[in-house]
């Protein structure tokens, strides 16, 4: 198991390095001039040239990339002379817009996105699994059909539409909830959760619908397995057959998808955050892309890659626990 873990961690490091290189190539090497973006619209060509030297853009690409990667682990000094910027570990560069370190921007925004993703995940897992399980066990009945029609509608609705509808109904008309205004958890869990409830519901309604359909399909497939018949032939109670023998197997594909979904969301749910004005990583990404703030976009991309690979590692480890066949592979 330890060897398996070490091997997996090495693979994660490799994947991150590759993603880093590709992203770096996309943002720094492709024909757009980072120096012009960094300098601003009023810059003269001489000023742009100066900035270019300062940013090291006149150096060979591999040197730039080496500097970027090294900066993450050792910190670096950007430029020289009086304009030099000391960038401390982990250095992801500075935002063009406000000259703040990318790392600080990310860490400021991260708790918001993590709160959003984790809360929504709890809701959608509970809802999706329950609905999917009921539909699978009542397969072919009116209940099954109505649930599946509802999930289809819910999964098809775009996030901004769901968000707007929830705002309109729950906030405007019924006035059950206040307009969401993000409060960190340090200001009290009630205020934190209360203000995140709408974004959670928005995200969860989309994912729960997909998970319900996935759970249903997976459960129906599993319950047709010969080993389920064996479990019944042993005289086990039906609830033991369904949970211990059926659900446990049916959950494996869901664990996989869940890892990837959660990993992606941890690095920001762009539309949801934007609609509800949540100051998360998604919002940061949105702004950075519009302002062509390349160091921030690069940082956000790496963060997302980091979370997704980490989540996949988590999935693999959970898999090894669930399915003994994986352990020997």
């Amino acid at each position: 198991m330890t060897r398996y873990l070490l091997r997996r961690l090495a693979a994660v490091a490799g994947v991150l390095l590759v993603i880093c290189a590709v992203t770096f190539a996309v943002f720094y090497v492709l024909p757009s001039d980072p120096a012009a973006h960094a300098c601003g619209k009023t810059c003269t060509p001489e000023q742009v040239a100066l900035v270019r030297t300062q940013m090291g853009l006149d150096r060979p690409v591999y040197e730039q990339f080496g500097g970027y990667v090294a900066g993450i682990f050792t910190g670096r000094t950007l430029g020289d002379g009086p304009a030099a910027l000391e960038c401390s570990v982990p250095c992801f560069g500075y935002s063009y817009q406000n000259a703040l370190p990318v790392w600080d921007l990310l860490t400021d925004r991260l708790p918001v996105s993590v709160s959003l993703a984790l809360g929504a995940a709890v809701l959608w897992l509970a809802g999706g699994l329950a609905v999917g399980l009921v539909a699978a066990l009542r397969r072919g009945t009116t209940l099954d059909r109505s649930l599946m029609a509802a999930t289809l509608a819910s999964a098809s609705a775009p996030v901004y539409f769901t968000a707007m509808m929830l705002l309109l109904v729950l906030v405007q008309r019924l006035e059950w909830l206040p307009y969401p205004d993000y409060r960190p958890i340090s200001e009290g869990p009630a205020a934190w959760a209360g203000n995140l409830l709408l974004p959670w519901m928005t995200l969860a309604s989309l994912y729960a619908a997909m998970y319900a359909r996935l759970t249903r399909a997976s459960m129906i497939e599993t319950m047709a397995e010969p080993y389920i018949r064996t479990a019944r032939a042993k005289g086990l109670y039906e609830r033991t057959v369904v949970t211990k023998h059926g659900l446990r197997s049916a959950l494996t594909p869901i664990v996989t998808i869940f890892g990837m979904d959660l990993g992606g969301l941890l690095a920001g749910a762009v539309i949801t955050e934007h609609v509800f004005g949540l100051p998360g990583v998604g919002q940061l990404t949105y702004d950075a892309i519009f302002k062509a703030d390349q160091p921030v976009v690069l940082g956000v991309t790496l963060l997302a890659a980091f979370f997704i690979t980490l989540a996949n590692l988590g999935v693999d480890l959970v898999y090894a626990v669930i399915d003994p066949r994986v352990r020997y592979a």
Binding site: E225, P226, Y227, R229, T230, A231, R232, A233, K234, G235, L236, Y237, E238, H245, R248, S249, I322, D323, P324, R325
Partner: peptide
């Protein structure tokens, strides 16, 4: 019937691999 199954009448199936649960010893 559930009480009798496995207790007083038992069954062996055709494909022993798919008839055994892969996750339990």
């Amino acid at each position: 019937l559930r009480e009798l199954r496995g207790r007083r009448m038992a069954m062996v199936f055709q494909d022993p691999l798919s008839s055994l649960h892969p996750f339990y010893t």
